[in-house]
Design a protein around this nucleic acid. Structure first.
Length: 478
RNA sequence: GGCGCUAUCGUCUAGGGGACUAGGACGGGGCCCUCUCAAGGCCCAAACACGGGUUCGAAUCCCGUUAGCGCUACCA
């Protein structure tokens, strides 16, 4: 690929909220495409909506991208810094007769729009200000009337070959002469975007499907400005489980929410990549390198995708299982600190290894480590309560028997094989099924009916603490 | 309302005229292992929206219908 054709893409969020998973995925596709083509990925913050934009939002978005491992080659640029260029472009269009001043006020337009709606017809600006004579315009300017600049939409077909949808075409008469410059001299989105994308020499515009209706307007602006159009790729929306656009009422929609839930950035990235994109085969778990290698705009799905949390969690579990305990330890330590659980100098590695395969998130993992370290974290769940009710006195008898059996085993022999042997012998001697002896031990030690094998669990919790928990069992049934 | 986009298991998807008895993954169900399963192994159910074309042949191409979604601002 010639260097003159070098790919330049951008992610251009407006800092009016947190980093939405849809935005994150758009950013990811841009980033993947840039890496794949050895192009540049540019970050541009579209902060022209002064009312809603905040520095805090900008920071959250940057942090979110960084967390996901999405790095940018240029920027962040702030759109607000280019207001002069935007205005100059609008004025140039005005000077060339490709745009005109409109003295209609917002209120007048709103009223006419409401009227049209009431009549059940489509509202389109009627160009009344375009028909103003030069003298009339001069007179209004003279009297200091505020005005917007409207783009004079030429009557023509506007079509492009979308990289994900194929050919999309519009008739320009279906939309009206849209405003490009507000009466306060600031640019409207469509102009600002085109002006910036031209200035930043963007070659591929990869963005959400909700922008396809903007695209013909922007193409017209490129043409009016005498510039070639970039390649457009419109990626499908992300929906909630009810098929509606994903929003807060669907639960977690911010990247930060998943970070807080203990989801791995790599898992999130993998999951997001596969939401609306497929490498073409049966691959599910894709390391970064392969993801980049396999990525293509053609592989992007043209239909909206439902965000399935269950699959995200499964995928996170896959990443968790594949991560060595040593790498998990810092995060677990951090979480234990947050829970106020002291490690007491214990080596966390064996504990982590022991609970790792059954956990799906770092939070779950840390919680289970905490239970094994600190008896205060033991909380009986519903299934444990059920078992308790079902077994009645036999439960207490088993706990007592387990304690009697284990108590004589000294610390040096407190190992999984020995523990299992002793417990088996005890169960046999009392004609108990092994499970009837072990399940109560599991419940007393963890509060749960699910854990690693009980002999391993005893080893992980340790001799003294295990015996303490067993002897401390008082048969409490709430 | 107008314009646009979209339509394969519940969900994410493979497929791009014959390789389709439509494949994989999540979730669901079952069996095995076993002291437990939210671990592991094996298995099962589950989809081409509908109607017309084109073609020897359509999940795949075309048209229409229906449905869903998006846009329709001096928001981005």
């Amino acid at each position: 690929m010639a260097s003159s054709a070098s790919v330049r893409v951008r992610f251009a969020p407006s800092p009016t909220g947190y980093l939405h998973v849809g935005g994150a995925r758009t950013a990811l596709f841009n980033w993947l495409f840039a890496r794949k083509t050895r192009g540049q990925f540019i970050l541009r913050i579209e902060d022209t909506d002064r009312e809603r934009s905040t520095d805090e939002h900008t920071r959250v978005i940057l942090d979110g991208l960084t967390w996901l491992g999405i790095t940018w080659d240029e920027g962040p640029y702030f759109q607000g810094a280019y207001a002069d260029r935007h205005r100059a472009d609008a004025e140039r269009l005005l000077a060339e007769g490709q745009a005109y001043r409109c003295f209609c006020t917002k209120e007048e337009i709103d009223a006419r729009r409401a009227e049209a709606e009431a009549a059940g017809t489509a509202f389109r600006y009627d160009r009344r200000c375009f028909r103003l004579s030069a003298a009339e315009v001069a007179a209004r300017l003279e009297s200091g009337l505020p005005f917007t600049i409207r783009f004079l939409v030429p009557d023509q077909e506007v079509a492009w070959d979308d990289a994900v949808h194929g050919r999309i075409s519009f008739q320009s008469q279906d939309f009206d002469d849209f405003v490009i410059l507000r009466s306060d001299g600031s640019a409207i989105y469509n102009l600002a975007v085109v002006s910036d994308d031209i200035d930043m020499r963007i070659t591929h515009v990869i963005r959400g499907d909700d922008h396809v209706s903007n695209t013909p307007k922007q193409i017209l602006l490129y043409r009016a400005l005498g510039q070639p159009t970039p390649v457009f790729a419109h990626v499908p929306m992300i929906l909630g489980t009810d098929g509606k656009k994903l929003s807060k009422r669907h639960g977690a929609t911010a990247v930060g929410d998943y970070q807080d839930q203990g989801i791995f950035p790599a898992a999130m990235r993998n999951f997001l990549a596969l939401l609306g994109w497929s490498p073409g085969g049966d691959r599910e778990i894709l390391p970064e390198r392969e993801m980049i290698e396999l990525f293509s705009l053609e592989g992007i799905q043209s239909k909206a995708a439902v965000f399935d949390t269950a699959k995200l969690e499964w995928m996170n579990g896959e990443y968790l299982s594949a991560t060595p305990a040593t790498e998990l330890r810092p995060a677990v330590e951090r979480e234990l600190g947050r829970l106020g659980v002291a490690t007491g100098g214990r080596d966390l590695l064996p504990i982590i290894d022991s609970v790792k395969s059954r956990a799906r998130t770092i939070l779950q993992l840390a919680e289970r480590v905490a239970v094994r370290l600190d008896s205060r974290r033991v909380r009986r769940d519903d299934k444990a309560d059920q078992l308790l009710r079902k077994m009645g006195d036999r439960f207490d008898a088993s706990v007592a028997l387990a304690h009697r059996t284990l108590e004589p085993i000294d610390a040096s022999r407190w190992t999984p094989p020995v523990l299992l042997d002793q417990l088996k012998a005890a169960a046999e001697a009392h004609s108990l099924k092994l499970g009837d002896l072990l399940q109560p031990v599991r419940v007393v030690l963890t509060g749960s009916t699910v854990s690693e094998p009980v002999n391993e669990l005893l080893a992980v919790v340790g001799r003294d603490e295990s015996l303490r928990r067993l002897s401390g069992w008082n048969g409490a049934r709430e």
